[in-house]
């Protein structure tokens, strides 16, 4: 547990080199999830490469295509409160502020937010099987206490959910993830970044070993007029989502020109449904159309007992959030549910 080597990298190349030198070395940014897991003996890195001092990663800048680049080391709180984000991408701001606590948002990096591990009870208990933690050992959640677990995109091997709020908004906004590794740089569309569990639930995302997230690009379109992030949970703050919904609408009068709906707390990744979004295009922005969209999104939803309620809750949340997006002022701080 304690035997990790700690090294600080001052630039990206050094960081990537340090990672590739040794197996089981991890990048350390905010540390809010990695150190949590390490203290529980759920991860045992042989080395930590502290990337906090890498020049240029803790920035936010406007891009020539009208979009914005969020540095991987830029903090969650700084992102949420940045004037560009507040004005142009208020959905992202809302989603970030719905997650964790003020202290954690001050510590957590944007890159690290994408790499959070699940909060599945069984993943967090080293004394029980878990395919994500210990491939091939089984998934106790399926027949166990699965109140917080997934209803969409599950597999026989894993029904864990991805816990981020920020990423639900990033998914809705079609963000791009810029990564760099030993083989060079590449850009991953947000929808392709996280993965469904399938038969490899140990893999949360499609990063290659040793690749470092350097930044996240937000496209020009920010849906600043009609957006809403709704997070439903077991207490009013500082709890992971039972269900969350990011809704972004582009309206022409009452008609929906473009719609994005992403769900959190329901799957192994932020959940998007192109079919539902296509359905909404050209339709009136009203309760019945949001309900129909919800039915499309949830058509393959499957409960595992304790989480059956999430299907009904998700439908209500999608409808309600669609209506809230029509009047973003109806949202209260911290993504509180009621006006």
């Amino acid at each position: 547990m304690n035997n990790f080597e700690y090294k600080q990298a001052e630039d990206i190349a050094t960081a990537i080199n340090l990672i590739s030198e040794q197996d089981n070395t991890k990048f350390l940014a905010g540390g809010t999830n990695l150190l949590d897991l390490w203290k529980y003996n759920l991860t045992n890195p042989s080395g930590l490469v502290d990337i906090n001092r890498i020049h240029g990663l803790a920035e936010i800048k406007e891009l020539s295509n009208g979009g914005v680049r969020l540095g991987a080391n830029f903090k969650n709180a700084d992102t949420a409160y940045h004037p560009i984000i507040e004005n142009k991408y208020p959905l992202l701001s809302k989603a970030i502020l719905a997650g964790a606590s003020a202290q954690i948002r001050n510590m957590a990096s944007n890159g690290g937010n994408l790499l959070q591990r699940t909060r599945c009870y069984y993943f967090y208990d080293p004394d029980v099987p878990c395919n994500k933690r210990n491939p091939g050992s089984g998934c106790p959640a399926k027949e166990g206490y699965n109140r917080i677990h997934a209803i969409l995109g599950t597999s026989d091997h894993c029904i864990a959910v991805f816990p981020s709020d920020m990423c639900v908004a990033l998914a809705a906004l079609n963000a791009l993830v810029n990564v760099e590794g030993a083989e060079g740089k590449r850009t991953i569309a947000f929808a392709d970044f996280h993965r469904l569990p399938g038969d490899r639930p140990d893999l949360d995302n499609n990063l290659k070993p040793g690749e470092l997230i350097t930044s996240i690009d937000l496209p020009d379109k920010g849906f600043a007029q009609n957006y809403s992030y709704l997070k439903l949970r077991d207490r009013h703050s500082y709890a992971f989502a039972l269900v969350s919904v990011a809704t972004a609408l582009e309206l022409d009068g009452e008609m929906i020109k473009d719609a994005r709906i992403a769900l959190g707390g329901v799957a192994h990744k932020p959940w998007r449904s192109t079919e539902a979004e296509n359905f909404l295009r050209g339709k009136s922005a009203n309760e019945s159309n949001f309900a129909a969209a919800a039915d499309i999104i949830l058509q393959d939803a499957k409960g595992y007992g304790h989480n059956d309620f999430k299907i009904a809750l998700a439908k209500k949340a999608i409808i309600r959030n669609g209506l809230m997006a029509l009047n973003p002022q109806s949202q209260l701080p911290g993504a509180k549910p009621s006006a």
Binding site: D125, V128, G144
Partner: peptide
């Protein structure tokens, strides 16, 4: 908000942290 859940298959609590055991927060 408060509840601790046992998984009878393992004889232990499934909920084992302040993330799972919900003490009311200031906003509650």
């Amino acid at each position: 908000t408060e509840e601790s859940i046992i998984d009878p298959r393992y004889g232990n609590f499934a909920t084992r942290s302040f993330a799972d055991y919900h003490v009311p927060t200031n906003l509650d």
